[in-house]
């Protein structure tokens, strides 16, 4: 039996359908990612799984129990961290952690181990005595995450957990998620960070309330059919504009210090030479690239 089983699920607000007839299952013990633009329906789906919204049609089963019937049973095995979760601003870091550990009745020995792991990621140890309200934005988010992770639920649901968290801490946060996974917890997580999508075992790409792709990151990458190259040049924005105008080009995207360009078919050496000329040597280097999830995502958005 799957831990979460979603069949023909639809959620409406008034006449607009936030989530349209989707099917999805989360296996026991996996880390499953919901990836999609803001407003695509991820939060509506998550809140429904957590028994906080009632489906308009279709069904959601958590460990075989119906979210519209077995509310108390589901809540007892499920840990949920909502988007923009707020802490007790006038309690200190330490008091907030203790409050949540007490709430979930975490045994003393266990909480010490977990606290140590969490401090390693959050780097909040030196600030234990500081009131939550006086932390920086990202520090607040890390404290909220720590409070959510202080106990180990059977199923953990996190809505955009790394909002505003710096890149070093994000990496360490994912290491903690894997520790929790090893302890047997099933994890469902939504994110706007495409590098995090790659850390999940399986992901669903969400657009406009529909699922546009579902599978392992490698499976989704395999759907990207166009030859993809990473280009570097002297003036990247101009390089992108030049390539967008070439007929052989499918899409162009800026990626930090390079431009990713996908082609309708594999270009040959002569073409590259021509392009160097027609960009007045703004094109400096090109290397074949395996698509990232971000490439897949952007391609789906452009061609939707």
């Amino acid at each position: 039996m799957n831990d979460i089983e979603i069949k023909n699920f639809t959620k409406k607000y008034g006449v607009t359908e936030a989530v349209k007839n989707i099917n999805l299952s989360v296996k026991k013990g996996e880390i499953f990612g919901l990836v999609g633009p803001d407003g695509a329906g991820k939060t509506s789906l998550i809140r429904s799984i957590c028994t906080l919204l009632v489906p308009d049609s279709g069904s959601i089963l958590v460990r075989g129990m119906d979210v519209s019937k077995s509310i108390a049973e589901i809540r007892s095995i499920l840990g949920y961290m909502p988007q923009r979760f707020s802490l007790y601003q006038d309690l200190t870091v330490e008091q907030n952690l203790r409050f949540f550990a007490d709430l979930f009745q975490v045994p003393e020995k266990e909480r010490e181990i977990r606290k140590k792991q969490l401090f390693q990621f959050s780097r909040l140890k030196p600030f234990q005595k500081r009131q939550a309200g006086k932390l920086s934005g990202g520090m607040k988010q890390k404290l909220a995450l720590s409070c959510a992770l202080i106990h180990t639920p059977e199923i953990l649901v996190l809505d955009e957990p790394t909002f505003g968290v710096d890149p070093v801490s994000r990496q360490e946060f994912w290491e903690i998620l894997r520790i929790i996974q090893k302890e047997g917890t099933t994890i469902l997580v939504s994110t706007a960070y495409m590098d995090e999508a790659d850390q999940c075992e399986r992901i669903a790409l969400f657009f406009d309330g529909n699922i546009k792709g579902i599978g392992t990151p490698d499976e989704l990458r395999a759907n990207f059919k166009y030859p993809l190259y990473k280009l570097s040049g002297s003036i990247l924005r101009d390089l992108k504009i030049s390539f967008s105008s070439f007929e052989e080009v499918h899409t162009t995207q800026l990626f930090g210090d390079s431009v990713h360009v996908s082609f309708k078919k594999e270009p040959d050496e002569k073409q590259w030479g021509n392009w160097q000329e027609s960009t007045n040597n703004n094109l400096v280097q090109w290397t074949k690239l395996k698509p990232t999830i971000e490439d897949v995502f952007l391609d789906l958005m452009e061609t939707k």
Partner: peptide, 13 residues
């Protein structure tokens, strides 16, 4: 101050 936190890759671009 962090104008693009929580924003998807296309909207960020």
């Amino acid at each position: 101050d962090e104008p693009t936190s929580g924003v998807d890759p296309e909207a960020r671009r």
